[in-house]
Amino acid sequence: MSVSLLVAVGVLFAAGTVLLLERTLTRVLLGVMLLGNGANLLVLAASRAGAPPIVGVADPERMTDPLPQAMILTAIVITLGMTAFLLALAYRSWLLTGHDEVQDDAEDRRVRELADRDEGSDAEALEAPR
């Protein structure tokens, strides 16, 4: 584990988190991408640098650990899928509302208003006939 990689991981996570906490879906998406890169580096940092893990090309003693690589490879491609999906979401949100901001959930807001007014939900519509 080297300090340089650790710092890179830390910065990617920090920047990714800040973007993730935004309301703009595009920014959230970029945050997810940064977090993905950070996570990949974090897993990579578990192995020491070395020769490519290809039998016959390098001495097994000098190879880097191949297992983190396999995991990262999977993660990279999953991040691609995730990105595509979030993009589609952002685009759809733009189509529907004219912007790509995440709005507060309407149902949750309704509950919050009920709480502010000190009322019950009447969710149990079976409650005493009114």
């Binding site: 309301r23 995440v102 507060d104 959930d105 309407a106 149902e107 949750d108 807001r109 509950v111 919050r112 208003e113 009920l114 709480a115 502010d116 000190d118 009322e119 019950g120 939900s121 009447d122 969710a123 149990e124 409650e127």
Partner: peptide
């Protein structure tokens, strides 16, 4: 019911 509304209102702000 009231308690549920208060707890939900306090924790489920609806904001991502």
């Amino acid at each position: 019911d009231r308690l549920a509304v208060e707890v939900t209102g306090a924790t489920q702000r609806g904001s991502l």
